[in-house]
């Protein structure tokens, strides 16, 4: 008896087709990456807390950053552009040359790092208007954070030969002790303007 073979449909291209589909879905579904500038808010003020018992901070220790409703930036009484903010901030935080107008430098002993000059009491005060654009505000925040990050990286490179986020936890803590982030945001006020 002669067997008649039923011609089978060639299914080898089926795999290719489904691969194509797979790739298409992989490309189009955006893996919504949640990225952002992480900040900490101060806890709410106590209602009973009298306002005038604020801690006294010396003027030279404060770095005042103001943004007005026209998105203009004023730092320490002078109008500057956002591009210059980072270097200005770094200059303020380190005070390398012991400038009497910049924060007080004191020598401290930090574990793993040793003797180092830091400005213990410096504070960056950021104030914005209600009319400031979010983008400008975030840019300023970004520059301030970037200044800290660069300083930390520089120190980490100098002392450990690695970038800050490559360090182990103990060394990271040591670096953080030298450069803790001190960005304070003023209680909101309405300065007027548009």
């Amino acid at each position: 008896m002669a067997k008649r073979s039923v011609p089978s449909i060639n299914a080898s291209s089926m795999a290719d087709i489904s691969f194509l589909l797979l790739v298409f879905f992989l490309v189009t579904t955006s893996m919504a990456v949640n990225k952002g500038l992480i900040r900490k808010l101060p806890p709410p003020l106590d209602k009973d807390q009298p306002i005038d018992t604020q801690i006294k901070i010396k003027e030279r220790d404060v770095f005042v950053v103001l943004i007005n409703s026209q998105n203009q930036l004023m730092v320490e009484g002078k109008q500057i552009s956002v591009k210059d903010l980072r270097s200005k901030t770094k200059e303020f935080i380190t005070n390398e040359y012991n400038d009497p107008n910049l924060p007080i430098v004191s020598t401290v002993n930090v574990p793993l790092i040793g003797q180092i000059n830091i400005t213990k009491d410096h504070v960056i005060s950021l104030q914005n208007d209600r009319g400031t654009d979010y983008q400008s505000y975030l840019e300023v925040q970004n520059e301030l954070v970037a200044a800290y990050n660069e300083l930390r990286d520089e120190l980490a490179k100098q002392k450990f030969g690695k970038y800050f986020n490559e360090l182990d936890e103990a060394s990271q803590l040591a670096v953080l002790k030298v450069y803790p982030q001190k960005i304070s945001e003023a209680e909101p006020k309405n300065y007027g303007g548009d």
Binding site: N34, K35, G36, L37, I38, R39, K40, L41, P42, P43, P44, N128, R130, L138, Q141, N142, P188
Partner: peptide, 19 residues
């Protein structure tokens, strides 16, 4: 700013500005 004040009241102090 208003949202931030509300978050402070709610003690949700860790925030992230998406960018």
């Amino acid at each position: 700013t208003d949202i931030k004040q509300e978050l402070r009241k709610a003690y949700a102090l860790k925030i992230s500005y998406a960018a």
